[in-house]
Design a protein around this nucleic acid. Structure first.
Length: 269
DNA sequence: GTTGAGCGTT
């Protein structure tokens, strides 16, 4: 999958994981490898992906063999422009080998003068065991649900993700997640209901149904060039092309929506 | 064709 050739975590012995944030959703492990491998021995790169869509989640885990090389990669690659976005490289906190980072004292290895305090934990060594009780278990679950919900209502409310953590467990992502698949899968069984409501929600005038033109073509009654500023090119093209809009069918099934076949529609019903 | 806080897999 997103590995170099293995199915699971290769060998987390004496390895140090880095968390790479803010990468593009199109960036793959192969794209990050040459970047990180230049600063040390990269053992593995893993990019978590969405369970449903399989798309990248926007961050990756780069596993180094040595701590000093990992730290060097953080210094060199943190803030680097990758695929048009500035990535954020930091040590993984909640990973399976988070303890190893402590043993290696990576944090203290390079107290370099990095004024990027945006992703630095000065004294994180004390919370070695806290990462489990704090967010680890909740996060691994809530965060996933958050994403699932956010993908549907994306862009509607930015603050929505903050408060959704509390109630996210109440929702079942399987029901919602597979819902879209069920629509496509059972579309033939539900073709009647789908076709009947599809044109209504796709068309800007649901009640008018497929009668956008009031009475006659306005283009014919009024001069099209009368508009001083080019009223709207889209308007002319819409009315000018065909007074009767093309089939309002959402997909390639125009027959089902406007002219229901006796055998098809009745058969499903 | 989409978005942008965050922490991981057979």
């Amino acid at each position: 999958m997103s590995h170099f050739g293995r199915s699971g975590p290769p060998d987390i012995s004496d390895t140090y994981s880095l968390l790479v944030l803010n990468i593009t959703f199109r960036t793959t492990a192969d794209d990050l490898f040459p970047l990180f491998d230049k600063y040390g021995k990269v053992v593995d790169i893993f990019i978590p992906k969405d369970r449903r869509t399989g798309e990248s989640r926007g961050f990756a885990f780069v596993r180094y063999k040595y701590a000093d090389e990992a730290q060097k990669a953080v210094d060199r690659l943190d803030g680097r422009m990758v695929d048009g976005r500035e990535i954020t490289v930091q040590f993984a906190k909640y990973g399976p080998n988070a303890e190893r980072i402590h043993k290696g004292r990576i944090i203290e290895t390079a107290p370099r003068s990095r004024y990027r305090s945006r992703s630095r934990s000065p004294s994180r060594k004390r919370y070695r065991d806290d990462y489990k009780d704090r967010d680890y278990r909740r996060r691994s679950r809530s965060r996933s649900y958050d994403r699932y919900e956010r993908d549907r209502h994306r862009g509607r409310d930015k603050d929505y993700r903050r408060r959704s953590r509390s109630r996210s467990t109440s929702l079942d992502y399987k029901g919602r997640g597979r819902g879209r698949y069920d629509d496509e899968r059972n579309s033939r069984s539900r073709s009647r209901s789908v076709d009947s409501r599809s044109p209504a929600r796709r068309s800007p005038s649901p009640r008018r149904s497929r009668s956008p033109q009031r009475s006659g073509s306005p283009q014919r009654s009024t001069s099209p060039r009368k508009s001083p500023r080019g009223e709207s090119p889209a308007n002319r093209s819409r009315d000018g092309r065909s007074p009767t809009p093309r089939s309002v069918s959402p997909r390639g099934r125009p027959d089902a929506s406007r002219s229901p076949s006796p055998r098809n529609s009745n058969g499903d019903e």
